[in-house]
Design a protein around this nucleic acid. Structure first.
Length: 649
RNA sequence: GCCGACGUAGCUCAGUGGUAGAGCAGCCGAUUCGUAAUCGGCAGGUCAUCGGUUCAAGUCCGAUCGUCGGCUCCA
């Protein structure tokens, strides 16, 4: 028994003097019974602890309840234990991996000869409910390491033994938690008992490699989530449903934007006419900007000799991502996985003077990369895609301005397409990991410094991620935040030390000597396919007018209004609007429904009234009430919306 | 690539080992309509592919291809 008393400082600044060994739970109780009941865990000097942990020293103490975000993590970690406990009750032969809380819930990894089925999942969930009813405590114990190892070994829990051996020293006592029959090697903390878990749901089963290494056997991972209330859980499940409704693969089919054809092969995109319109808008926008910003537009071949890829280093660094060689005549060719070598050949074709720099070569370049069969995903991960790729060759003195221009360019792209929240990352090298990064320390420092300078000068907040640079240089990645808060990585601005060296790039400097130019890669859409996929999800298929494949639909009420509808349509076409006349022999209501489902921004109903007065009745996407206006006014209005690339209607 | 689930008409989906179905879309006809589905008829299929079990396979088994959820990867 410890003796003496300790001082506990509470968040309101008050200090309690209590006997050594008092628990956070005791203190919560002394404050109020309600707090004691609501308490889930505690925090002392920044460490999360169990409520039942005896306090040994003077400390700050905060009792965590549902209102504290840290409590949710503890709660979900305890939910994972609850899951494991239920699994062991039902399937005692199962071996345990690990089971952490995640950003949106929790999972637990299990090893067993037969995989879990969907029915098993239901049974497990029911068992979890039972264990919640039984209100079993999460009891912490300390065991001598050897005893712990013996106990887990006896149960055949090879994975737990591995963790104990990896994470603890031989002389240490190990921390375990018991929940009924279930025992886990775990640092904790946990909530007091299973009865505190109010709302949870098991979501899916998936394979996961032991220790995340694909050479290891696969475990069965059960994913679930839990919340403090049924309502929050339901909200979360609804959000998943909402996200599903935005799935670009489903919308791509419903809105007839694109397809992937089994006969042609996976990861290869067919742009249908309506998707093609959006792509054309994206390409036109980019080409226009290229011209405005001093880029030269180039085109390079899709297949090039293998020797080129040897020179560039792709044959070494990138082979497993490249399509196989094709033999033609006596030479071997490869489909291009990147555009850079092509642009370099253009640069090298003539001797450059410092006066020529910077040279900015831009291409909407289609590349092909071999992606492993299980990783393709709609438009977001494909085997063939088109990059808005450009390479800038400049002098070291020009580099900061060039990078700054790229970063601003990237933000303009994203803003024009309706994204206004970004996160910026600076990926740097790891000087201790020389074999994964080419180039000298001076090069890396110079490059990293210029990227930092640019970000600071532009007043952009950014996160530095050490070790995440490309092997050939540091980079700035701009991630966008979409309409439902998801993060997408698209734009990237990267330094390259590798290629100028490999291709012996040079320019003639002022003093007549030959110098090596600095090279920057940048792609702002990243891939047009991927960007399109993100656009579809961001807008849930309801694109701003300028991107909408069909911007307005004329709906004549009956056959006799057709001529008037055609007349207005002609005016709209004249103004550059993509308009259709739906003159089918269908009821107006049916037409409205169909075009509304196709998410056309404007439906223009015309009948006797409109034809007589030269007006249109405008039904605006997403609005109940229609508006009457002269046809000429509508033409003006939609023309402006298109010209402004307005995100709203 | 790995683990699991799935693959039936253009789409969404039903279908005990015993004659392949519905709704929508399509086509034909009627209807000419005021703000989210007019009515009737017709046509549409090697049940992903290949092989096996069986008197009999959409259904059971195996392989292949593809899709989905994850893992791994994403220079």
């Amino acid at each position: 028994m410890s003796v003496g008393s300790i001082k506990i400082r509470l968040p309101d600044g008050s200090v309690k003097e209590v006997p050594r060994g008092t628990t956070a739970q005791d203190i919560a109780k002394s404050i109020s019974p309600r707090l004691a009941d609501a308490a889930l865990a505690a925090k002392t000097n920044g460490d999360l602890i169990d409520l039942a942990r005896p306090l040994e020293n003077d400390t700050d103490l905060r009792i965590l309840t549902e209102r504290d975000p840290e409590a949710l993590e503890v709660y979900r970690h305890s939910s994972a234990h609850l899951l494991a406990a239920a699994v062991l009750e039902l399937f005692p032969e199962t071996k345990l991996g690990h089971g952490p809380a995640t950003e949106s819930g929790f999972f637990y990894d299990f090893y067993r000869p037969n995989p879990f089925t969907a029915e098993d999942l239901e049974k497990i969930e029911k068992k979890m409910q039972e264990l919640v009813q039984q209100n079993i405590p999460y009891a912490r114990e300390f065991l001598p390491r050897e005893q712990g190892l013996t106990e887990f070994k006896k149960g055949g829990d090879f994975m737990k033994c591995h963790f104990i051996e990896q994470l603890t020293r031989p002389d240490e006592k190990i921390s375990i938690y018991r929940t009924g029959k279930f025992t886990d090697f775990c640092r904790g903390p946990h909530i007091p008992s299973t009865g505190k878990i109010k709302a949870f749901k098991l979501l899916n089963i998936a394979g996961a490699y032991w220790l995340g290494d694909e050479k290891n056997p696969q475990l069965q991972r059960i994913y679930g989530t839990s919340f403090f209330s049924k309502k929050e859980l339901d909200d979360y499940l609804n959000k998943i449903e909402e996200a599903k409704k935005r799935d670009h693969r489903a919308l791509g089919q419903q809105l007839d934007l694109f397809s992937i054809q089994e006969l042609a092969g996976p990861g290869l995109i067919f742009w249908h006419p309506k998707g093609g319109i959006i792509r054309k808008e994206m390409e036109d926008w980019m080409r226009e900007q290229y011209v405005k910003r001093g880029y030269s537009l180039v085109y390079t071949p899709h297949v090039m000799r293998k020797q080129l890829w040897q020179t560039s280093g792709h044959e070494g660094y990138y082979v497993q991502n490249m399509f196989d060689v094709m033999e033609l005549d006596d030479a071997e060719y490869r489909l291009k996985p990147m555009n850079c070598p092509g642009h370099i050949l253009i640069y090298k074709d003539s001797l450059k003077s410092y006066r020529d720099l910077p040279v900015r070569l831009g291409e909407l370049g289609t590349v092909y990369r071999y992606e492993r069969s299980g990783v393709m995903h709609g438009l977001l991960r494909v085997r063939g895609f088109t990059q808005d790729d450009a390479h800038i060759f400049c002098t070291p003195g020009q580099i900061e301005k060039e990078i700054a221009d790229c970063v601003e360019f990237a933000r303009d792209v994203l803003r024009d397409f309706g994204f206004d929240k970004f996160q910026t990352e600076l990926s740097t090298w790891d000087p201790n990991d020389r074999k994964n990064f080419v180039g000298s320390e001076e090069q890396w420092n110079m490059a990293t410094r210029s990227l930092e300078n640019v970000l600071k000068r532009l007043n952009i907040e950014y996160k530095t991620i050490p070790g995440e640079a490309a092997f050939y240089g540091p980079k700035i990645d701009i991630k966008l935040v979409d309409a439902i808060g998801r993060l997408w990585q698209l734009s990237t601005v990267q330094f390259d030390f590798n290629l100028p060296q490999r291709f012996q790039l040079e320019y003639v400097a002022e003093d007549g000597t030959r110098k090596q130019p600095v090279m920057v890669h940048r792609a702002l859409y990243g891939s047009i396919e991927r960007f399109f996929g993100v656009l579809i999800e961001h807008y849930a298929g309801a694109f701003p007018v300028w991107l909408s494949p069909v911007q307005a639909v004329m709906i004549p009420i009956s056959e006799r209004h057709r001529d008037y509808a055609e007349k207005v349509a002609a005016q709209l076409k004249e103004a550059g609007v993509r308009v259709e006349v739906d003159a089918r022999n269908e009821k107006m209501n049916a037409k409205i429904r169909e075009h509304a489902l196709q998410k056309a921004p404007f439906l223009l109903v015309v009948g006797d009234k409109e034809a007589e007065s030269g007006k249109v009745n405008v039904r605006i996407r997403g609005k109940e009430k229609t508006e009457d206006m002269p046809a000429t006014d509508f033409v003006e209005r939609i023309k402006n919306l298109i010209a402004d690339k307005s995100p709203t209607l």
